[in-house]
Design a protein around this nucleic acid. Sequence first.
DNA 1: TGTACATCAGTGAACGCGCGTTCACTGATGTAC
DNA 2: TGTACATCAGTGAACGCGCGTTCACTGATGTAC
Lengths: 229, 229
Amino acid sequence: VSRQIWTAQRVGVSSIAMDTHRDAARRHRRPYHHGDLRRALLDAAEEELTENGIEGFSLRGVAKRAAVSHAAPAHHFRDATGLLTALAALGFRRFVLAQDRRQSEAKPDALAQLIAAGLGYIDFATTHPALFRLMFSSNRPDFTNAELAETAGGAFERLVAQVRGVVGADPRQDRIAMLDVMAAWSMVHGIADLMNSGRAKPLLQMPTTERESAVSELLARAIRNRGSV
Amino acid sequence: VSRQIWTAQRVGVSSIAMDTHRDAARRHRRPYHHGDLRRALLDAAEEELTENGIEGFSLRGVAKRAAVSHAAPAHHFRDATGLLTALAALGFRRFVLAQDRRQSEAKPDALAQLIAAGLGYIDFATTHPALFRLMFSSNRPDFTNAELAETAGGAFERLVAQVRGVVGADPRQDRIAMLDVMAAWSMVHGIADLMNSGRAKPLLQMPTTERESAVSELLARAIRNRGSV
DNA sequence: TGTACATCAGTGAACGCGCGTTCACTGATGTAC
DNA sequence: TGTACATCAGTGAACGCGCGTTCACTGATGTAC
C-alpha cells in the first residue's frame, strides 16, 4: 500500500484524488485500483525479463509480479508484444542517458566524447543484459511501432553525429564516414555482447579501471587509421 | 523411404543389415525403425530453429519434422537441452569449416589469414543466423557439456593462434596480445550480430564484393595501430 | 454541494492449446548356442 | 544354418502444466447538472 501511494504521488495524481485513494487504501489495505499500473507493469516486465530471460517471459508472470490479476495488463498494453515494445522504447531512453552520463565526465574533444559514449553503451549493456538483448537481439518488440522506432533511431542518429564530429565528414553524405560509423558501432557492440555472454573473459577479469582503458583503446582503433580502404 | 535408405547408406550400416532393412522398407513402405534418426533429428532441429527461432523451438516440432512420434527423440537425446547441445557442437564444427574455406582462398600471410577467418566467421553467422545465435547468444545448450566445450574452445584457440601469428606474441603470455584477440573478435562479432539483426544497413546494402572489402578494412583496423594502450 | 450516471480499471472463472514427460506396448535387430 | 531370446528403437495414449485470451462482473473515478 505504501508503494501504491508513493507511485501515485510520483506521477502527480491530483491531491484530491490522492486523498480519496489513500482513504480507500486505508480501509481495504488493498485498493481496487492500482493507481499507476502501467508503470508498475513496465517495472515488473523488466524484472521478469531479467530473471526469466526473453524466452521465459510471460504476461501472467508479469501480472503476478505486479500483484494484479493476469487479465489486468490488457487494459494498458494490448498484449505481450505491446508491453515488450513499450519496455524496449523505455530501454532506448535509458540507453541514451547512460551515454550522457559518461560523456558529461569526459573531455569535450570529439574522439573523447565518442569513446565516452561507447563506455556508456557498455555500461548499459552489462547493467541490463536482458533488456539490452530485447532491444538489440530479439524480434519480440514491434520495431515498426512509432515510439520504439523513434527512440531507437534517435540512438543511431546520435552515433552518426558523434562520428561526424570525429572524422569531419557527414556519414549521410560520405561513404567512408558511414563505414566509420559501422566500425565504431560494431566494435562497441561486439565488446558488449561478448562480455554479456561471458566469453570476453580477458576483459571481464580485469579490474574496472584497467578494463575501461582497454575498451577505450579498442574503440579508438575502430576509428583511427581510417581511409586506407 | 528413399531418404531412409540413403541415410542408412550414408552412415555405413553393414550391407546385410541394409538388405534386411530395405526389404522391410519395401514391404511396409514405412519401416518401423528409422535407421539414422539421430542425424535426422539434428537436421530437423536446425530447420525448426531456423523457422521458429530459439524461442519457438520445441521437441514436438522437431519430431514432427522428422516424421517420427514425439517420444522418439528421447532415445537419442535426453531432452531438448541435449538436442540443442549436440546441435551447437555441430555448429561449431561447421563454423570452423567456414573459416577454413575462406582461408584456403587467401594469401598465406598472417594478417590476410586472420581477415579471411573473419570473413568466414561472418559467412557462417549470416548463412545460419539462428544457429549462430544458439551458439553465441543463448543459454539453452549446456555449455559445460564436454563435446560442446571442446568444439567451442577449439574455435577460440584457433583465433588466439591466428592473432599470435599477426602480432608476434603469444596472447596467453602477453596482456597486449590478448587485447588484440579481443579487438579482432569483438569487431568481427559485432559486425556479424549487427548484420543479422538487420541494423548494419550500410553494410547490408553494399554489393557483395564491396562489402567484403569494407569488412576486411574494419577487421584490419582492429589489429593494426596497436600498442598505444 | 449533492446526486446520477457513464466510463474506466481491475477481478476471477473458464476456454482451448501446445508443451514435456511418462508408460505400457510392439516391431526390428543382434547375438548366443 | 536355425532358433530362442535379449535388447534396442519406435508408437501412441495419457497426464498435468502454464500459457494467452475471453467474458461477465464489480469497484472506483470522473463529470454533468
